[in-house]
Each structure stands twice: as C-alpha cells, then as structure tokens.
C-alpha cells in the first residue's frame, strides 16, 4: 500500500514535469526538465524492488540528457508558433486517446493483480531458488539475462552494435565527401 502511494506520487511529479518541460521558453531548461521523467522512472523501479533496472535507467537518462544538450544547444535554434491546424490535430489526438482508454477499461480490469504474475517460468526461477542452484549466480536477474535468456542479450548487443555501425558509416561518408570537395577546390 505504501509502495502504491509512492508510485502514484512520483507519477504525478512526472506528469507535472513533462507539462513544465513543454511550457519552458529556454531550450536548456526544457531539456533539464525532461530529465524529471526519466529520473522518476528510475525511482519507481527502485520502489518496485528492481535495482538493476533503476541503475541502468538512471545512467541512460544522464547519457540522453548529455546527447540532447550537445545536439540542441545552438544559438540559431528558433521556436515556431503552433498554427491553428496543429491545435486541431492536438485536440483530435487527445480525444482519440481518451476514447481508447475509456473503451479499454474492461480489459484493464481483467489484468492479473499487480505483483502476482501467473507465469510458470518466472515461478520456476524464483521458487526454491532454482536459478541460483542451476547457474550458481547470486543475482537472479543476471542469471536470467545471461544464462536462460542469453540469446535475447545477444540480440540487444546486436542492436547497440548496429546503431554504432550506422552512426559511424553515415557520418564518415559525409566527412569524406567534404574532404574530397576541399581537395578539388
């Protein structure tokens, strides 16, 4: 019950933070205010007893803020005023989202109670400490992501690797082109 109250409190702060980020006039303060959402998510993970996720979420939030600051802090960045068409589209989007939420109330009620998963596999890992017995890893989360589900982790590493490869390839082509143009001139 106490955890529920804290989670709702942090969710409220996150909603207020995201609204404040939209209303900021300065780009830098807007980016820093966006950080409230990520750090709130990290706190929620901590309250739900998932420290592994909380650490990763916290660090990636800092990383994302650094990249955003590097990317968007430019003197010539101008803010465009929203047109009437934009406002109409925004109102329509909010209405559709509210309608979807309203229609899915029955489905949300049918979900299993929070913290009581009915999955057989997760029961197998936790009950009788099967994961610790079979892999001899004291941290059950690590034993799952690097032993039982190591194939998923390989996919995750491949996603990261491909992102790096794409960044380097695209940016290097442009740099090379510029150098050859300079050589011609």
């Amino acid at each position: 019950m106490i955890v529920d109250t804290w989670v709702i409190f942090i969710l409220g702060i996150m909603i207020i933070g995201s609204i404040a980020a939209i209303e900021q006039k300065e780009m830098l303060s807007a980016i820093i205010t966006v950080g409230i959402v990520g750090l709130g998510t990290s706190l929620i993970f901590l309250f739900l007893q998932a420290p592994d996720l909380a650490i990763v979420q916290f660090l990636f939030e800092i990383f994302a803020i650094i990249i955003l600051v590097r990317a968007f802090i430019k003197p010539d960045y101008h803010k465009s005023e929203p047109s009437i068409m934009n406002k109409i589209v925004t109102v329509l989007t909010v209405l559709v989202l509210v309608a979807i939420l309203f229609c899915s109330i029955d489905m949300l009620k049918a979900l299993p109670e929070f913290g009581n998963p009915s999955m057989e596999t997760s029961k197998y890992y936790v009950d009788n400490a099967n994961a610790a017995k079979e892999t001899h890893s004291a941290n059950i989360v690590t034993s799952i992501i690097l032993d039982y589900r190591a194939y998923d982790t390989l996919g995750e590493a491949t996603v990261l690797f491909t992102a790096i490869l794409g960044t380097i390839t695209i940016l290097r082509i442009k740099t090379k082109k510029r150098k050859s143009e300079e050589a011609i001139e």
């Binding site: 990249i67 990317a71 892999t135 001899h136 890893s137 190591a150 790096i164 960044t167 380097i168 940016l171």
Partner: peptide, 27 residues
C-alpha cells in the same frame, strides 16, 4: 562463480562502454 556469466558480462561491458563513447565522439 557462475561459469560463463561473468565473462559474457565483461564482453557486454566492453561493447557498451566503448560503443556509446565512440557514438558520441563521432557525432
């Protein structure tokens, strides 16, 4: 302990640490 798990962990650490830095560096 845990056999191959710490070794895979080290490899993932190398990929993530070098990869993320190289990405920002290239940008």
């Amino acid at each position: 302990s845990a056999g191959v798990i710490p070794i895979i962990d080290i490899f993932i650490g190398v990929i993530v640490s070098m990869g993320l830095f190289v990405m920002v560096w290239t940008l």
